[in-house]
Design a protein around this nucleic acid. Structure first.
Lengths: 81, 81
DNA sequence: GATGATTACGGCAGTCGTAATTATA
DNA sequence: TATAATTACGACTGCCGTAATCATC
């Protein structure tokens, strides 16, 4: 998500308090796991491919739902306590 | 999810091709992260608490959505290739 | 004393960061 | 030659498994 938003691995890495290489490896590992390129590499940075857009929109929604799950679980726990 | 389904850390661990201690630690870490107990420990095993049920239902749906995300992304990638 | 979860502890895998390399304009 | 990504490589953190311990019936 950070790479998609920034358009650069380097800038995204700074945002995530990481350096370029590990983040680059994460992207490559994810593409490998999915069996699909998510980004087009350009000399100016990274550009989302259609498959990347599809994955990005799912990822955003799923992460939002994780937040909801955490909040609801905490709420249920406090209700009990 | 496995522990909830089996009702025992040990049985769940076997199902996951793991041993008891790391799985027990995962559960404890998750409870710590959420700040809430998910299971009641009984001498016969683990029983879901209400907060655990809430978390379980969210977890199931979220993992199913991850599968959908993967499938759709792969599909988009192949459509492009 | 048996069953089942948890804690201690040593070893290994995976991920990080720095440095070097590759690629394109 | 400048920018940006990737690969090489050494170091460290974190997770696993075995063994020991705690707790309840």
């Amino acid at each position: 998500m950070a790479v998609a938003e920034e358009g650069h691995v380097g800038r995204a890495a700074r945002k995530l308090h990481l350096t370029q290489p590990p983040l680059s490896r994460h992207i490559l590992a994810l593409e490998d796991e999915l069996g699909t390129r998510l980004f087009e590499r350009t000399p100016r940075g990274m550009m989302l491919l259609p498959a990347g857009e599809v994955f990005l929109s799912h990822a955003r929604r799923i992460l939002a739902e994780v937040d909801v799950a955490i909040a609801r679980t905490k709420g249920a726990g406090e209700g009990e306590a």
